[in-house]
Design a protein around this nucleic acid. Structure first.
Length: 220
DNA sequence: CGTATGCAAATAAGG
DNA sequence: GCCTTATTTGCATAC
C-alpha cells in the first residue's frame, strides 16, 4: 500500500564530483580496435583469433582445445534442446560450482579469459555428459536433472536500490574509509548486510582509484 | 523468448 | 579481522 519510492531516474542534484570531476577524455582519435579499456585481460576468443604459437597462451592453457570444446558444447546443448538459462540453472543444483546464463553465454562465445575457461570447461563437460546420459534414459530424466535443488555456492549478487546507492555515496564522500563501527551503523541504517556494505566501500575505493589514473600511456 | 553485454558485486590472494 | 589489487562472475536489461 505504501507508495514505495520507486526506481527514480536519479535526481539531477547530488552530483558527487569529489576528486575526479569528470576526466572523461575525448575518445581515442583513430583506433578502430575493440574496446580499449585500460588493462583488461584478453579473452580466449581474442587470443585464439591471433593464431598464437601452437594455440597455447602464456600460462600453457590450450586455447585450441577450449575453442573446440566450446563449439562442441553449444552443439550438444542445443541437441538436448536446452537453453543457456536451463544449463545455468541446472548447474546450481550440482556439486561443483554454479554458473549463470551469462557465464554459459560467455563461455560459448569465448568471451572469457583463458583462466576462467580452463576452470569452466571441466564443469560443463561433466555436466553435459551426465545430461546426455539422462537424456538417453528418457527425456523425463533429463528434465529432472535440469530442475534440481538450488543449493547455492556463491553469494547471490546484491542489487542496491538507487536510494541506497545514493546514500552510500553520500557516506563515501564524507569518509571513504569508515571504521568497523561506522560500517556497522551504515549497514543497519540502510538495512543491508554489514559485509555487503563493507565490500561496497572496498569496491568504491577501487573504482575511484582506477578511474583517477586513466591510461596515460597506452598501446605502443 | 533466448542470448548478449555493461556495470559492478563478489571473490582470490598477499599483507 | 580488515585492507588492497586483480579478477571473476551475475543481475538487469538491452538486443
Amino acid at each position: 500500500l505504501q507508495p514505495t519510492q520507486q526506481i527514480q531516474p536519479a535526481p539531477s542534484i547530488t552530483q558527487p564530483s569529489v576528486v575526479v570531476a569528470n576526466p572523461t577524455p575525448a575518445n581515442t582519435p583513430a583506433t578502430p580496435q575493440v574496446h580499449v579499456s585500460s588493462s583488461e585481460p584478453p579473452t580466449v576468443g581474442q587470443l585464439v583469433s591471433k593464431s598464437h604459437s601452437g594455440g597455447y597462451d602464456e600460462d600453457g592453457i590450450n586455447l585450441e582445445e577450449i575453442r573446440e570444446f566450446a563449439k562442441d558444447f553449444k552443439i550438444r546443448r542445443l541437441s538436448l534442446g536446452l537453453t543457456q538459462t536451463q544449463v545455468g540453472q541446472a548447474l546450481t543444483a550440482t556439486e561443483g560450482p554454479a554458473y549463470s546464463q551469462s557465464a554459459i553465454c560467455r563461455f560459448e562465445k569465448l568471451d572469457i579469459t583463458p583462466k576462467s575457461a580452463q576452470k569452466l570447461k571441466p564443469v560443463l563437460e561433466k555436466w553435459l555428459n551426465e545430461a546426455e546420459m539422462r537424456n538417453q534414459e528418457g527425456q523425463q530424466n533429463l528434465m529432472e536433472f535440469v530442475g534440481g535443488e538450488p543449493s547455492k555456492k556463491r553469494k547471490r549478487r546484491t542489487s542496491f536500490t538507487p536510494q541506497a546507492v545514493e546514500a552510500l555515496n553520500t557516506y563515501f564522500e564524507k569518509n571513504a574509509l569508515p571504521t568497523g563501527q561506522e560500517i556497522t551503523d551504515i549497514a543497519k541504517e540502510l538495512n543491508y548486510d554489514r559485509e555487503v556494505v563493507r565490500v561496497w566501500f572496498c569496491n568504491r575505493r577501487q573504482t575511484l582509484k582506477n578511474t583517477s589514473k586513466l591510461n596515460v600511456f597506452q598501446i605502443p
